[in-house]
């Protein structure tokens, strides 16, 4: 398959490889696959990569790796990518307690869309969301494609503090707050999982290219998971699914 991409400079220690200028799972999958191919190539002098919706930012040390060699490495990796087929993708199951104190805006979302709160939960949990990239704050997942039936504008007046783990809706987007932060999203529930835990060797729970599936839980289950998370014994539930790319 001939791929359409361009390599551009992002300063003297970075390049960005850009794919088609749209938000799509297929384009994003190419970004992820290029990242994997470059990781496998282990080119000396290459630094950390930042995968985003449709571009891969690659940092490098020009004193160790001349630009031309990096470029050759990228082109080669691009050829190898066809071997890196993604047979399956990881889906993280995110337990959520919806409504009440943990989801103060669940009613607003229901009312705005003329449906019941139960329907909001049912729709919100009925599909897998792709993690296109992480950014904004450590561990924050930019998720794809929420059902239009629960789209709701942001709060007119943002809250000064939203608790870590809060699950929200902003327009056509859904997301989870990894750390306490101010924000204007409609908060519909909360997960006891920690998306960002600085005390862990791998502090970030999620990764770009994987998927999220929300699962409604009751207060008892929520509390039990929260206790295990606090003890550091909770292993996040994951399943594999056939990738749509």
């Amino acid at each position: 398959m001939k791929r359409d991409y361009t390599i551009k400079h992002a300063g003297d220690c970075g390049v960005t490889v850009e794919f088609e200028n749209i938000i799509s799972e297929c384009v994003n999958q190419q970004v992820i696959q290029l990242k994997i191919a470059l990781e496998q190539a282990a080119i000396k002098g290459m630094g950390e990569m930042i995968p985003t919706y449709r571009a891969l930012l690659i940092q490098y040390n020009p004193l160790m790796l001349p630009y031309k060699e990096l470029e050759t490495g990228i082109v080669k990796a691009m050829d190898c990518m066809e071997d890196v087929t993604s047979q399956s993708s990881k889906v993280y199951i995110i337990p959520v307690y919806y409504g009440e104190a943990y989801g103060p805006d669940l009613g607003t979302v229901a009312k705005h869309n003329g449906i019941s709160e139960e329907e909001v939960i049912q729709i919100h949990t009925s599909r897998d969301y792709r993690i296109y990239m992480l950014g904004f704050t450590p561990g924050f997942p930019y998720l794809g494609g929420m059902d239009a039936r629960i789209e709701t504008p942001r709060l007119e007046k943002p809250r000064t503090k939203i608790d870590a783990g809060s699950v929200g809706i902003a327009g056509a987007q859904t997301g989870i707050y990894p750390i306490d932060s101010p924000g204007g999203w409609q908060i519909i529930g909360r997960t006891p999982l920690k998306l960002f835990d600085r005390d862990k060797p791998n502090p970030i729970l999620l990764e770009a290219g994987a998927y999220i599936r929300f699962k409604p839980v009751g207060l008892k289950v929520y509390a039990a998971i929260a206790a295990d998370v606090e003890k550091g014994t909770y292993v996040p539930e994951t399943v594999l699914t056939k990738g749509e790319a």
Partner: peptide
């Protein structure tokens, strides 16, 4: 469409004034 940011990037938002991104800049 949001992409990666590293130190030294010069962003121009809608207001037209440049911002040089530095050590504590966000990553995207």
């Amino acid at each position: 469409i949001s992409d990666g940011i590293i130190r030294g990037a010069v962003q121009i938002p809608g207001h037209g004034n440049p911002i040089i991104m530095l050590s504590d800049c966000q990553t995207t």
